[in-house]
Design a protein around this nucleic acid. Structure first.
Ligand SMILES: [Mn+2]
Ligand SMILES: [Mn+2]
Ligand SMILES: [Zn+2]
Ligand SMILES: [Zn+2]
Lengths: 133, 133
DNA sequence: AATAAAATTGTAATGATTACAAATGTAATT
DNA sequence: AATTACATTTGTAATCATTACAATTTTATT
């Protein structure tokens, strides 16, 4: 399913800018920052504004087509992969790595029937292969 | 174990300000923000500076006596309870609730032997008892 | 008491995010 | 095709939590 399909399916009008951002998120599962997305798209869309990136990602997040990651203290990170997975951040190089082999934590719900849980994010912190030792 | 014990055990010189912050964290497991801590302590320590709160919490976090929580998009949150537990944030009232009955996720390590994992934080988002429906 | 080191304080700088109004683009209507 | 309404984008300015830093105060050492 390509960028256009995803946008129309979520009732998001597929403007040039929105398509570009969606396309970027579907081809870069690097959990990019706003600046990284802007810097990458800016050359091909010379009139692009950083505000549009903020607006677009905010809209995408509301509609559930991207994930907001609060794993990085400095910048917001976004993930075009909305399937259930956790994340690891290297304290040294700040890389964010997907952790797919995680057990679903829905067992937790048992203990808190009074809470309505919409989302779960698990963030690991440590050192990646290149940075350890 | 009281505030003084914890500080000396972690080689943190127990100044008046540090003791006050530590004492606050041990009696308020509400995951307070810097402002909340400052506002609460400021009356009794009139010369207190907000920078000191930042410095102190940063030192405490390095020494592992408090936990930094990145669950809140706006402000940093801190937790005087460093035992393994997850957190829930209500999208409406922004309250942060402890989730204790969680299975340890160390099973995840099996799938990523190349990573050195120092810390895990799990953040749930949704609506609390008062705010749901 | 004098000196050195550590901690605190106040103020200024930083920088990511948000607010907002003007400009542009798109769709509907006559 | 012109007009109007509406949605989106853009640029700039404001916000505000956090950090940097130098001056001051406190504490330890000689
Ligand atoms: Mn991911
Ligand atoms: Mn807690
Ligand atoms: Zn690394
Ligand atoms: Zn609530």
């Amino acid at each position: 399913m390509d960028a256009l399909d995803i946008l129309v399916k979520h009732d998001i009008k597929p403007s040039l800018q929105r398509l570009a951002v969606m396309e970027y998120m579907l081809t870069h599962f690097t959990h990019p920052t706003v600046d990284e997305i802007f810097s990458s798209l800016s050359p091909s869309i010379p009139t692009l504004s950083k505000t549009t990136i903020y607006n677009t990602l905010s809209l995408f997040e509301e509609q559930g087509v991207v994930l907001y990651l609060g794993i990085d203290k400095k910048n917001a990170r976004f993930d075009g992969n909305t399937s259930h997975h956790a994340h690891f951040r290297c304290k040294n190089c700040n890389a964010i790595i997907d952790i797919f082999n995680q057990k679903p934590e829905d067992v937790v719900l048992e203990g808190h029937p009074e809470l309505v849980i919409d989302d779960v994010q698990t963030y690991y912190t440590g050192y990646c292969k290149n940075c350890k030792k």
